[in-house]
Amino acid sequence: MTEKEQKQIFEDWLSQHKALIFKIVRAYAFTVMDQDDLFQEIIIQTWHSIPTFRREASVNTWLYRISLNTAIKWTKKERKHYQSETLEGVQHVLQESRMQTDERLRWLYEEIYKLDEIDRSITLLLLDGFSYKEMASILGITESNVGVKINRIKKQLISKSKKNDHYGI
């Protein structure tokens, strides 16, 4: 594969599936600096993965797998950025959109962020409509285990939403 072909595929993937990566970045990284750092890690892994993509899975599933695996390992990285760090002189890849975010969505992200790394992955896959079978394949666990975890997470999220009426949830 030539570099030009690789770049073309990368651009196609990114234009069609960037929302997927944004969701994972926001669910796993709290500060803007961390979100930028995680996004960079994910795009690097995505770039390197292109020559090995054999179309056995959909691009969506492939990208989810790479992004989640990267995010999980990224959370265990030694160095993290903090909000107090200077933002000057750093070339950021990711910038927050100026669009007004729905308060209820903000709340949902906060609740997802409070979950442990594994439950976060499952919640993202669940909210993005993956089947139990697809989730089991991405996570590498049994469908029954996926089901058990989903039941627990759903109950938790529903119960929290009931306690947060002021968000209009």
Binding site: L14, K18, A19, F22, K23, V25, R26, Q35, F39, Q91, H92, V93, L94, Q95, E96, S97, M99, T101, D102, L105
Partner: peptide, 11 residues
């Protein structure tokens, strides 16, 4: 709903 509203802009 967020699928139609990108959270970030890529440089």
């Amino acid at each position: 709903a967020q699928n139609n509203q990108p959270l970030y802009v890529i440089n």
